[in-house]
Design a protein around this nucleic acid. Structure first.
Lengths: 340, 340
DNA sequence: GTGAAAGCGCTAACAT
DNA sequence: ATGTTAGCGCTTTCAC
């Protein structure tokens, strides 16, 4: 309510010097219990708050973390971000969330902004390319999620996408189908891993891996749009003509799986009778599909806590000796529901 | 890559004084075209970036906006936030997004943090209670979305929830049903508006408004959970016994509507034959329901741009004369799909 | 145990 | 048109 108090006024009001006030606020250095009480009382009384800008300027750090995310409207990303932001908050960091809309120029601009704010560290999620620390004008700890980093001082946390694809493909094969992988043409490193897992498993299990075993959908269409579904229907029709039923599909995301299921319904394909399908993520949508979608669960909480913990550690390891730049790979898990 | 440059070093390197450098950076004050060129060149050459902490300290403002949001994993909120963040970024503001998880203590803590960062303004989205500017220790412009504000200097932007409820209820009535409203027990001011719209329409159209015309679901269960769906099935069964088919349901969100549709399927209720239903939001899920959900669309882009624009205006109106604290109410719209 | 003072990087009078 | 300087609020030597 009153005007903004500064440490100087608190000092005067408590009859001590600014340095002493600073010491008690940060519980750093020596002071008598008596002074402590007095200072704390004035602080409370006048509702004093530290000016973090001044503090940051002085300390050359801002207790702020930047998160670069491709697309907040994707539930996978938004819950990831939500969880990390929570972690950071509880550790007394604030978080600046930067939604790049998958646009590299914007990404660069954001990075400049974050640097100018003396951000202490960076979380970089997915995106098309690998992340190259060279675009940083000052070294700062960064942890990449689902996105291969390049350069020093960069940690990597990711689900085991390869393993997920292996599990899904094996499952589809066991169910007696000749699996096809559906993806959207945009290629992140996690998708690439899933494709590798798919191919390797196909080969290893002696399944035929032909030209149209991997179907790539236009990234111009949005999930859930009529265009997207139309395109899927067309691909599905071709598949029906070429393969024998039941079809087996590994979709690289649950949203995509959901669109495929709707297209399949339009084509009067029964699930899992005529078409067996497995998604990826265990997104909320998988429980709203009919029948409910069998999928590969990513452990979002785990990813979030590993990533934030690693970043905080890296920030506090002032010395860059601690080169525990081991990648952190997190297990995924098959969630059996009703589409296989 | 080199070390961090300061304005002082740029000054020396370009053979001018710091103030001149500051002037050309901010294009403020006079300087010769020649100096401008020289300074800009050194800035580029050494990859200088303004230290925004120092600037903020000096200017008593940080070019930062805080957004308080109840729950980022709700797509309505996340796309709202995504859109606003975009707007702010393009106007050169950074955004600190604070996910309170609907917890008031956390909300307060966030507000303290934002104040300490000398945030220039606040966007406050929804939440249980009205937002009282008295919890701010220093006056700052805030715009509330979907949440009734209390106190000075507070703008209000919201969809016309009342109108939406009127449209939905009327539609259900026209379809020959005796409408029931389903909600989750948590009460935000927007939900309250929808309830008013529902009740008023029922009365006005001479429909019977009895005790169980409004069904409130436990907020302990998460959307999509088995518990939630079980509870819905029970309520639905009662409804079937009491009313004659077809049932008419106005659900206060699309997610809720989707859960209701799944519960209805378990009960072998056909849609829209036995049950007609209208949701609210036009969330992505409405296009993944079967049949696709008829709903009331909120114009998220409009809300986002109005809110961010108003906030920026308020920030720049240093004088608090501009009391255009008119509420901004945004029209909603019926999206007819296949559930009525 | 406490205070005085320097300085983080910047802007904005106030000079010239 | 440009330079000098005070000071934003804070932390941290260095004295005492």
């Amino acid at each position: 309510m009153g005007k903004k108090m500064s440490i100087k006024e608190i000092a005067k009001l408590s009859g001590v010097s600014v340095s002493t006030v600073s010491r008690v606020i940060n519980d750093n250095g020596r002071f008598s219990e008596d002074t402590r009480q007095r200072v704390l009382k004035t602080i409370k009384k006048y509702n004093y708050q530290t000016n973090t800008l001044a503090k940051g300027l002085r300390m050359r750090r801002s207790n702020t973390i930047g998160i670069i995310v491709p697309d907040l409207s994707n539930t996978f990303f938004s819950s990831l971000v939500e969880k990390m932001e929570n972690q950071f908050f509880s550790k007394n960091y604030s978080t600046i969330i930067c939604d790049t809309g998958r646009n590299s120029d914007k990404e660069e601009a954001y990075i400049r902004m974050l640097e100018a704010k003396l951000t202490d560290g960076l979380i970089v999620i997915s995106g098309k390319k690998t992340f190259d620390t060279n675009i940083l004008s000052r070294p700062m700890p960064v942890v990449c999620i689902d996105r291969k980093p390049k350069g020093k001082k960069t940690l990597f946390v990711s689900s085991n996408h390869y393993q997920g694809a292996v599990i899904a493909t094996t499952e589809l094969l066991k169910a007696g189908t000749q699996p096809t992988l559906f993806k959207v043409s945009r290629n992140s490193s996690s998708i690439l891993d899933r494709i590798r897992g798919f191919k390797d498993t196909m080969k290893k299990m002696g399944a035929e891996l032909h030209n149209s075993s991997i179907i790539s959908l236009s990234s111009d269409y949005r999930a859930g749009s009529d265009d997207r579904r139309l395109e899927i229907r067309n691909k599905l029709r071709k598949l029906i003509n070429a393969d024998k039923l039941p079809l087996g599909i590994f979709a690289t995301s649950d949203t995509l799986a959901a669109d495929i299921m709707i297209a399949a319904r339009d084509l009067h394909l029964s699930i899992p009778g005529d078409l067996k399908i497995i998604g990826f993520d265990d997104a909320p949508i998988s429980r709203y599909c009919y029948p409910q979608l069998t999928t590969i669960r990513q452990d979002i909480s785990q990813i979030a806590s590993q990533a934030s913990q690693h970043l905080i550690n890296a920030i506090n390891n002032t010395d860059d000796d601690a080169e525990d730049s081991e990648d952190t790979i997190i297990d995924v898990q098959l969630v059996e529901r009703s589409t296989v």
